[in-house]
Simulated scan of single mutants.
Amino acid sequence: MTQDQPNRLDRIEATQAVHSQILNELAVAHRELTEFSVQQAQRTEERLTRSEQLAQQNSEAIAQLVTATNRNTAAIARHDEALTRIEEQTRQNAENMSRLEQRMNQLSELVTTSTTETIQLVARQAVQAERDRQAWQEDRQTWQAEIRRIWEYLERQTGNGNGRSEQ
């Protein structure tokens, strides 16, 4: 192992932690978007029902126009207020959806970037591991040659191989 190999492992672990955090954030954003969509569908259904009720009230008010002009005016005013609230809520919902979509796009870009960086880091580590293996193999061969040379020297020094010189 080389000295900087733990640093590379630390970087991989840090990148993996960032990926996990981004994935968690994406999951939360997805869940929030789903909840928001369900709430919007419910609100739309309620507003539709309410609008149908107001339309029925307006139809009855028109039938009684001659005798209830003042009541009809009030009903129209309430209807306009409801439509204004619906329009405002629809505008706010569109803005919220736009912000959520932007955030989802940002998070998707972060995941793509982090994934690319991780792949590049793994590729660099594979190349370095191969270099380290080759260097180790060369060092091993050098040490074997050195040990063989020392052994041959010692054999020449001892002469008969029993550790005593025959001088």
Rank of each mutant, 00 (worst) to 15 (best):
S165R: 13
R99H: 06
S114I: 11
Q102G: 02
L26K: 10
Q167I: 10
L54R: 03
T158C: 07
A77R: 10
H30E: 12
M104V: 11
N7W: 10
R156C: 10
E81M: 05
A61I: 02
E45Q: 12
E46D: 14
D139R: 03
R131C: 03
G163R: 04
L65N: 06
S114W: 02
E101P: 00
E88S: 12
T113Y: 07
R50H: 08
W143S: 03
I147A: 06
V28A: 06
T90D: 07
M104K: 15
L100I: 07
D4Q: 13
L121G: 00
E146I: 00
Q57R: 06
W136D: 09
M104A: 15
T112W: 01
N160A: 09
G159E: 00
T84R: 13
N93L: 06
R31G: 02
Q144P: 01
R124W: 06
T115L: 11
E146A: 00
T49F: 11
Q5P: 01
S59V: 09
L48C: 07
D132K: 03
I62R: 00
A27V: 06
A63S: 12
E155I: 04
Q57F: 02
A17Y: 08
Y153Q: 14
Q92S: 01
R11P: 02
D80N: 15
S59E: 14
R148Q: 01
E25L: 03
I22V: 15
N160E: 14
Q64Y: 00
A129F: 03
E45F: 12
D4V: 10
Y153L: 13
Q42D: 13
A126N: 13
R50N: 11
T44F: 09
L23G: 05
N24M: 09
E88V: 10
T49V: 13
E130L: 04
A74Y: 01
R133K: 00
R31S: 03
N70R: 04
I62Q: 04
R11Q: 14
L121W: 05
D80W: 09
A17S: 15
V122P: 02
Q64R: 08
E88W: 03
R156K: 14
Q5F: 14
D80C: 12
T49A: 15
I62Y: 07
H79N: 15
Q53V: 08
S20N: 12
